[in-house]
Amino acid sequence: MSEHADHERSSGSARLLMGTAWAVLLLGLWLWGRQVTDIRQGTAAPAGAGDLASVGRPPDAELPPAARPLGHALPQRIDIPDLGVQAPVVARGLDRQGAIDPPPYDQAGVVGWYAAGARPGAAGAALMVGHVDTETRPAVFYRLSTIRPGENVRVVRDDGKVAEFTVDDVRVQERDRFDARQAYGQHRPGRSELRLITCGGTFDRVSHSYTANVIVSAYLTGTSL
């Protein structure tokens, strides 16, 4: 997403911008949840928009094998060394509309974990979302679109273990053609997977929203203490 310092806009417009971006993301999650589990209830951004555009990896790049999933423990912190990110993780539930309640606007350095889904390190696809910017400065996932396959993501858990993930896919999905199953569904059965999600594309001055979502996929490749 763009740096808000370059824009002179009102507080109300900024709130609308963030609210719209989150609504697009979380509506996709809600619809995917209904489909799979049958629950009834600008300026240029860091990454350009594209319909399932993938950063991909060099043909000769070798990624490590997947590690055996861990038990169920709660995430406490996420570290992304290549991005300089070290952020607390908080559990988020669903709001009255059936969408995840994101971290508050005044907690731009916090990452939200969808607590009703998989736990990071356990089998399944754990979902984490974070803001890209605030009204005045970049937020926790501002540089998320610059991460590349092969780089590492570490999740500190409350059982004393650190789940170590390797990025294997980075995509930018157009908001109007959002594929929730691709974004949130498990890519390979039996693995422990992680999704890091934020907004991307370009800022649309008409709709006061961004045109895409950045979706980083990673899988468990190790554990440390």
Rank of each mutant, 00 (worst) to 15 (best):
Ala115Asp: 12
Ala5Ile: 11
Asp6Ile: 07
Phe178Pro: 03
Thr37Gln: 15
Leu194Ala: 07
Gln97Gly: 15
Ala116Phe: 09
Tyr105Arg: 12
Thr198Pro: 05
Arg154Thr: 10
Gly109Tyr: 01
Ala91Ile: 04
Leu74Asp: 14
Gly71Cys: 10
Glu151Arg: 07
Val155His: 01
Gly33Glu: 07
Gln35Glu: 15
Ala53Gly: 14
Val89Glu: 00
Arg175Gln: 15
Tyr219Cys: 13
Ala47Gln: 09
Leu74Ala: 12
Arg92Val: 09
Asp79Gln: 14
Arg92Asn: 07
Asp60Gly: 11
Ile147Gly: 00
Tyr105Trp: 13
Pro58Trp: 01
Leu16Lys: 07
Ala163Ile: 02
Leu83Glu: 12
Val89Pro: 01
Val140Gly: 03
Gly109Trp: 01
Val170Trp: 00
Leu17Thr: 00
Cys199Thr: 08
Leu25Lys: 03
Gly200Val: 03
Arg96Trp: 11
Gly71Leu: 11
Arg34Ser: 14
Leu70Glu: 01
Ala163Thr: 02
Leu225Thr: 13
Pro103Tyr: 03
Tyr105Glu: 13
Asn213Asp: 13
Ser207Lys: 08
Ser2Arg: 10
Pro58Tyr: 00
Ile197Met: 07
Ala45Pro: 11
Glu62Asn: 03
Gly150Ile: 02
Ala53Tyr: 04
Glu3Cys: 08
Arg68Ile: 11
Gly48Pro: 11
Glu193Met: 10
Val162Ser: 06
Glu135Ala: 13
Pro104Phe: 05
Leu225Ala: 15
Glu193Trp: 11
Thr221Gly: 12
Pro138Phe: 03
Ile215Asp: 02
Ala122Thr: 10
Gly201Leu: 01
His131Ser: 05
Val170Asn: 02
Glu174Pro: 02
Ala99Asp: 06
Ile78Phe: 03
Lys161Asn: 08
